[in-house]
Design a protein around this nucleic acid. Structure first.
Ligand SMILES: [Mn+2]
Ligand SMILES: [Mn+2]
Ligand SMILES: [Zn+2]
Ligand SMILES: [Zn+2]
Lengths: 145, 145
DNA sequence: ATGTTAAATGCAAATAAATATCATTTGATA
DNA sequence: TATCAAATGATATTTATTTGCATTTAACAT
């Protein structure tokens, strides 16, 4: 069976993209931070440890590319920048985000349960669904006092 | 019973904000475009018809204020700007957005069905949910060929 | 191994959405 | 009608992201 990294290499090759050092290092940052939702700046800062010569534009370009290849997902927590998380093929369609309206913390729940809803939506709307994005807003355990 | 506009006036008064001409006119734009998801620039252009002296900064400030007052909702369709729609108190928690990955068109479905999911999420996570946001990505009727 | 070539990079400049500054105007209240 | 904080419009500024371009590099063929 294929590792996540093998999948990256195959996807790049399939579309004629090169496997550069920069892309490897950025990919490693996501592997090492699977629980995080990283912004381009955050990725840039982490990458610079291993590869100080990298340019911020390369980070932006790589994030776009990885998203196109479904290697990472783009998220929006309305905090002024895009955020990304690794697609491990086990988290896809399988976790939602809980955003605390008090402290801003983002946590995750490993529940999906949208199949019935998607079915109903497809019937009612003639829209062919391939993905969904669910955010819950409210108060985290610490902020409920 | 209170009209939507009365609610706006009351909410403003309650918090010590003034009911200005600019705010009235921006509000009217949302009343007249209930099916739309408007960007600040779009609001600005529409407002200028009725009130050409208005400044773009006022539009931005008003949208922020209206959002704070729950008069409008902020949406993100990942097209480079924020978008807003009127809270009619009948659409709240009651429609989701369908985003076509081919043509970018955004449509709506009047289904909710998230109560069970929210219950389960609250139990599993100790997170107190007050709102949610659901987007479906896929292909609209026209783009399914 | 080496040469070839298109793809990718780093840097700097450019873009565009959103925010901040500040002098002037205006709505609410007395 | 006078008062005054709140709001506005114009403009400058900020910040995330994108683009242009000369240089470098990965992939592939010799
Ligand atoms: Mn996540
Ligand atoms: Mn809508
Ligand atoms: Zn919190
Ligand atoms: Zn479409």
């Amino acid at each position: 069976m294929e590792s996540l990294f093998d999948m990256l290499r195959d996807k790049l090759k399939e579309k004629g993209y090169k496997l550069t050092t920069q892309r490897r290092v950025i990919y490693d940052v996501f592997i090492d931070n699977q629980e995080s939702h990283l912004s381009p700046e955050e990725v840039y800062d982490m990458v610079k440890d291993k590869y100080p010569e990298i340019g911020l534009a390369t980070v932006y370009r790589t994030l776009q590319l990885f998203e196109e290849l479904d290697v990472i997902y783009k998220l929006n927590f309305d905090d002024g920048c895009n955020r990304y998380e690794l697609n491990t093929n086990t988290n896809h369609h399988q976790h939602h985000h809980l955003i605390c309206m008090e402290c801003g913390k983002v946590s995750e729940v490993e529940i999906d349960l949208l199949d019935k809803l998607e079915e109903k939506v497809e019937k009612e709307s003639k829209f062919k669904i391939v993905d969904h994005n669910v955010k819950f807003f409210g108060y985290c355990e610490d902020c409920q006092k």
